[in-house]
Design a protein around this nucleic acid. Sequence first.
DNA 1: TCATGGCGAACTTTTACTTCA
DNA 2: ATTGAAGTAAAAGTTCGCCAT
Length: 364
Amino acid sequence: MELGLSLGDGVGFLREDNNTEKSTKQKIKSTGLDFCMGLGLNSSAAAGGDDQEREKPQKITNEDDDDDDDDDDDDQMSEGDNQGSDDDNTPVQLNLLPLAPVPRRALPNWSTSDNGSPENGSSGNMGLPVAARGLDVNRFPPAEEVSSANSVGTTSPFHMEFGLLRRGTGYLQLGGQKRAFEAATGNDVVESERGSDDDENGLQTRKKLRLSKEQSAFLEESFKEHSTLNPQKQKLALAKQLNLRPRQVEVWFQNRRARTKLKQTEVDCEYLKRCCETLSEENRRLHKELQELRALKTSNPFYMQLPATTLTMCPSCERVATAPPPTAAAESIPKPIPAFPLTRPRFYPFSQTPTGHPNQPAPS
DNA sequence: TCATGGCGAACTTTTACTTCA
DNA sequence: ATTGAAGTAAAAGTTCGCCAT
């Protein structure tokens, strides 16, 4: 018996993002996965032989692309690898529906209106007081500014802790963590933008800082609204509010998306393991049932000569079979296992599932 | 005190797409 | 209408520093 298992990632559909300044369609990789599982005795029957082609991206241009992701499965089902036509080896094929789409709520403040823009003052601060702004986290401030930075933390409800970095081994983290920078060297400010890590000598330093809990929480809140940034507005606004460089915000979102995808992959793997176990068990049961029926046929050659009205359709292989009379042997066959629930668990990355528990979706 | 693995920030490369000449 | 270069954004993969154990 061979079990073929393919895990396509259903990638590459397009989304027209309302929040992008340009009306271009941004390629978004779906976190929804498309499944096709084949379980059979013959090696050629295992599904997944054409997975390479299946993984070709499909363009979806309307706004509700997440929902449309479900439609992809029909094609894959129709291409099931049921070539194993041998009666004994007809594989059990299971096509798993993709996960329920993540509701994409509109982010009220980022798109076009000025309400969410921090440039206009109050409403755009998203809870951050103006006093919390104005400190470049990666700018090495003068001594008096360092002290004032601490005072910012005392006045802000976020109590931001800003890591201050310097080139070379210099590293500064406020908020009780170690502050190890070479204050005596008098090196100037570390430049903030991408590609500026090279100092005048061409030496490349890697900036490492730990975002404060408040900064991370704020970014998480934004990520909940949109997993992608509006580069011209949201990124800059977040960077300004959190006193981070836009590049830092951008990187954070990239890494956050990667972490979400990784977690979803882990959930999918666990789910597929359970699918495999269930299908294997059913496969064993069906084989046992088949052997019993054959033994019954051998012992009673007139057994199959039944009226046509007793023909039934096998729910697994969709082939016509004759329903045996209710003999003791037939009644001893257990009833079929209910179909495996083809709803895939959804990873909730925000610990705010409808049920209040992480990774525990609300009952439908 | 040292070793180690996990985590996360930052970086580089790849890929897909759009724009424009 | 077609084509190729340039630009852009995100994914994918990697590196590396910090920190808990």
